[in-house]
Design a protein around this nucleic acid. Structure first.
Length: 284
DNA sequence: GGCCCTCATGTTTAGCGCCC
DNA sequence: GGGCGCTAAACATGAGGGCC
């Protein structure tokens, strides 16, 4: 196992599932090269993979940890691994999960940031924490339980600017009222915190901003999957529309107001392996 | 000519083998 | 690690043959 392999296992332990394209964005110069290594790791028993049948064409493989990899990760952390049957159940549930595409969407957001960072000097994704890690940290640090449950936390560094943010990844399955309720929760418990809403369509973004009128909207910014696909911009680019009556110009991620809030995740993540490239984030 | 059936080829997206 | 080209999978489409 190379340092890069071990880092990949840490990422999968924290974030459960990735596609070859996402692994490539995080760790490899090309999708082709990532696919080769993922295939080798799968054949050597380090990874498991699954995918659904789609028509026409074929779906990308979804890669997750195999049981030997779970044991390896636990051993390196001096922890007791889950049982084999518990792991098998976890993988089967993951493959059949209704939230699998949402999880992949969130992970794709962060791996896209890592790819953007690799292409720009003095830029990096310094932290990438999962939903469960954030929930645990917020509960411990702030006593916040059900009011807010972000899909992830990140710290983005671009030159001298540092942007810490929560991400809410929307696939159009939640009502706007529910999304609006989350904003109230953030305004109550974490006023001033930057919260990014990744919405699926321009129409939903328009309705969402209309709903924000009168809500605690400080620090809220939105983008859409449609805009990202049409513009070719990465998620660190000028695609974020701030909420509120001020500018209607879309800003870069680094131009969003920094909240000064830094989440301290009380979980394994820092220093689990020599990180093989400078742009790679601390994962948890 | 119209209908039905079989077979070959094209399409799309992702994975992979081989060579350098 | 890069380049080239093939494979997998399932459907769409068109050509060709047989029958009435």
């Amino acid at each position: 196992m190379t340092d890069r392999d071990l880092y990949l296992l840490d990422v999968l332990a924290a974030h459960r599932v990735l596609t070859a394209e996402q692994v490539a964005a995080l760790l490899y110069p090309s999708v082709d090269r990532a696919q080769r290594r993922l295939l080798a790791l799968t054949r050597r028993g380090a990874l498991e993979r699954f995918r659904a049948r789609v028509y026409p064409g074929s779906q990308a493989w979804r890669y997750t940890l195999s049981y030997p990899a779970v044991q390896l990760v636990a051993a390196r952390r001096a922890e007791r691994p889950a049982s084999r049957s518990a792991h098998n159940t976890t993988v089967l549930r993951l493959a059949r999960s209704r939230t699998l595409e949402h999880q992949l969407g969130v992970n794709g957001f962060f791996t896209s940031l890592a790819r953007d960072a690799a292409a720009r000097p003095l830029t990096r994704l310094a932290n990438w924490y999962s939903e469960s890690t954030v929930a645990t940290a917020l509960q411990w640090d702030h006593g916040i339980r059900e009011a807010i449950r972000p899909d992830g936390y990140g710290r983005w560094i671009e030159g001298p600017r540092v942007t810490t943010f929560f991400i809410e990844y929307d696939r159009g399955t939640e009502s706007l009222e529910r999304l609006g309720g989350k904003i109230t929760g953030y305004a109550t418990y974490l006023p001033g915190m930057t919260v990014l809403y990744h919405l699926h369509s321009a129409l939903r973004e328009t309705h969402f901003h209309h709903k924000l009128i009168g809500a605690g909207r400080e620090g809220v910014a939105t983008t859409t999957a449609e805009l990202l696909a049409a513009s070719g911009e990465g998620v660190s680019g000028p695609v974020w529309l701030p909420a509120g009556p001020g500018t209607r110009r879309r800003l870069r991620l680094s131009e969003l107001p920094g909240s000064g809030f830094a989440l301290q995740a009380n979980e394994w993540g820092a220093g689990t392996a020599p990180i093989p490239a400078p742009h790679l984030p601390e994962v948890a």
